[in-house]
């Protein structure tokens, strides 16, 4: 386990009035994270990053909450039918009313990805479909120089927590997942395993923002 040494010890402080809450880091406060998709991955990544008071989250999803999303996505029964962007922003503001959030109810395309995430430091790929994951990963790597993308591939089913890994593919691409478990007949998406992947994703984003370099390269398996 790594011990974290703040780059500037004076730059972090505790959340006002709450002694037991985690320290808030200057680097996170200055950061902008784009979250593409607010399903099982995105709704949970947004929660984790909000709890750390990450500067600004740009939240993008065109969809509404459905009853069968509740098995893994961070929504509540009384939010069925609402836009996921609106429901997520409400949930995050219940944690911190002053959370800085930007919401867009659009279906992302290569053009809108470049536009909406222009000021993001890191982009989280939180889509459901394999071809959409491909599309945003390719777009960020090919058309958004300097941006880091954290993508996910292989999280369906249950169990096998330790098969889900964080791997640095290049200096701009971090890939989370077991690489093989796609959704299919008899292979559902479940809250615990999607959650493991989502928290790997959030943790990788924090690591990128705190260090601005891939410090986990050395301990990445391959």
């Amino acid at each position: 386990m790594k011990t974290f040494t703040p780059p500037n010890p004076g730059a972090f402080f505790l959340y006002r009035g709450a002694e037991m809450t985690p320290p808030v880091f200057f680097e996170l406060k200055q950061s902008v994270v784009g979250i593409a998709g607010l399903g099982g991955l995105g709704s949970n990544v947004a929660m984790a990053l909000t709890r750390l008071k990450t500067g600004t989250l740009i939240l993008v999803d065109f969809d509404r909450v459905e009853a069968d999303n509740l098995n893994r996505q961070n929504y509540f029964h009384d939010q069925i039918g609402r836009f996921k962007v609106d429901a997520t922003m409400d949930n995050l503001r219940r944690i911190y009313p002053d959370a800085e959030l930007e919401g867009h109810k659009v279906r992302l395309t290569p053009e809108s990805i470049v536009k909406l995430f222009a000021r993001a430091d890191v982009i989280a790929e939180c889509f459901d479909r394999a071809d959409q994951k491909q599309m945003i990963t390719e777009t960020v790597l090919a058309k958004m120089p300097g941006k880091v993308i954290v993508s996910v591939s292989g999280l369906a089913g249950w169990g096998g927590s330790n098969e889900i890994v964080t791997r640095q593919v290049s200096d701009r691409l971090i890939l989370i997942g077991d690489g093989v478990s796609g959704i299919g007949p008899g292979i559902p998406l479940t809250a615990p395993r999607v959650g493991v992947a989502a928290y790997h994703q959030a943790n990788a984003i924090v690591e990128v923002l705190m260090h601005r370099k891939m410090s986990f390269a050395a301990r990445s398996k391959s």
Binding site: L41, C126, F127, A130, Q134, L155, A156
Partner: peptide, 10 residues
């Protein structure tokens, strides 16, 4: 050549 493969689910 690096081939980064995606499977569905999220």
């Amino acid at each position: 050549i690096e081939l980064i493969r995606f499977v569905g689910g999220g």
